Amino acid sequence: MTGRASDSCPFMAGSERLVDPEDDAALWVTIEFPEAMKLTHTDEQLVNWVVDQILRHKISVSACAQHCQRPLCLSLPVVGIPRDEEHNIRDQAKTLTLWWLGEILADRVHLDRNVIFP
């Protein structure tokens, strides 16, 4: 992933923080988490929650990652799709989330709960 490392990217590989992509043309799909999920859900369950929220259309779309600015959410970049094509935005966000789920299941990455649930 290209971009810059920051203390707010919620994905990590071992002890190394991954980076959010830098792309001025990207939109960010944000999914909210209930605070109680911190203690009751695994990383796999949290990412499955994200997929479910995308399928239920319970997302917000913005020009920047919200997990950089506030807790209890996760933002995913969507590139190359106009803002008015919500169906395509959701599809790309779902595809990316399923990819992250595969990485978590393969034990290559994990969520930094201190970013999502400070």
Score class of each variant (00 low, 15 high):
residue 20 D to V: 08
residue 20 D to R: 04
residue 21 P to W: 09
residue 21 P to L: 14
residue 22 E to T: 12
residue 23 D to W: 08
residue 23 D to C: 12
residue 24 D to L: 14
residue 25 A to F: 14
residue 25 A to Q: 14
residue 25 A to M: 15
residue 26 A to G: 12
residue 29 V to T: 01
residue 29 V to Y: 01
residue 31 I to Y: 02
residue 31 I to A: 05
residue 31 I to G: 03
residue 32 E to P: 00
residue 32 E to F: 07
residue 33 F to E: 01
residue 33 F to I: 02
residue 33 F to A: 01
residue 35 E to W: 05
residue 35 E to Y: 00
residue 37 M to H: 09
residue 37 M to D: 12
residue 37 M to C: 07
residue 37 M to W: 13
residue 40 T to N: 01
residue 40 T to V: 08
residue 41 H to S: 15
residue 41 H to Q: 13
residue 41 H to V: 07
residue 43 D to K: 03
residue 43 D to T: 07
residue 44 E to I: 15
residue 44 E to C: 13
residue 44 E to Q: 14
residue 44 E to F: 12
residue 45 Q to L: 11
residue 45 Q to C: 04
residue 46 L to K: 00
residue 46 L to M: 07
residue 47 V to W: 05
residue 47 V to Y: 03
residue 47 V to G: 02
residue 47 V to C: 10
residue 48 N to E: 15
residue 49 W to N: 10
residue 49 W to E: 14
residue 49 W to Q: 08
residue 50 V to L: 04
residue 50 V to P: 06
residue 50 V to C: 06
residue 51 V to N: 06
residue 52 D to I: 04
residue 52 D to A: 14
residue 53 Q to A: 11
residue 53 Q to F: 08
residue 54 I to V: 14
residue 54 I to H: 03
residue 54 I to M: 06
residue 55 L to T: 00
residue 56 R to V: 06
residue 56 R to D: 15
residue 56 R to E: 14
residue 56 R to L: 15
residue 57 H to Q: 13
residue 57 H to A: 13
residue 58 K to W: 05
residue 58 K to M: 07
residue 60 S to G: 06
residue 61 V to A: 03
residue 62 S to H: 05
residue 63 A to Q: 12
residue 63 A to C: 10
residue 66 Q to S: 10
residue 68 C to G: 07
residue 68 C to M: 11
residue 69 Q to V: 10
residue 71 P to H: 06
residue 72 L to T: 00
residue 73 C to G: 07
residue 73 C to D: 09
residue 77 P to R: 03
residue 77 P to F: 13
residue 78 V to H: 08
residue 78 V to S: 07
residue 79 V to D: 00
residue 79 V to P: 00
residue 79 V to A: 07
residue 79 V to N: 01
residue 79 V to I: 15
residue 80 G to A: 08
residue 80 G to F: 07
residue 82 P to G: 06
residue 82 P to W: 03
residue 83 R to A: 14
residue 83 R to G: 04
residue 84 D to V: 01
residue 84 D to G: 00
residue 84 D to I: 01
residue 85 E to Q: 09
residue 86 E to G: 01
residue 86 E to L: 14
residue 87 H to A: 15
residue 87 H to Y: 11
residue 88 N to M: 12
residue 88 N to Q: 12
residue 89 I to E: 04
residue 89 I to A: 02
residue 90 R to K: 11
residue 90 R to A: 14
residue 91 D to T: 04
residue 92 Q to R: 02
residue 93 A to P: 00
residue 93 A to Y: 05
residue 94 K to T: 14
residue 96 L to F: 12
residue 97 T to P: 10
residue 98 L to E: 12
residue 98 L to Q: 11
residue 100 W to G: 03
residue 100 W to V: 14
residue 100 W to N: 08
residue 101 L to V: 02
residue 101 L to F: 02
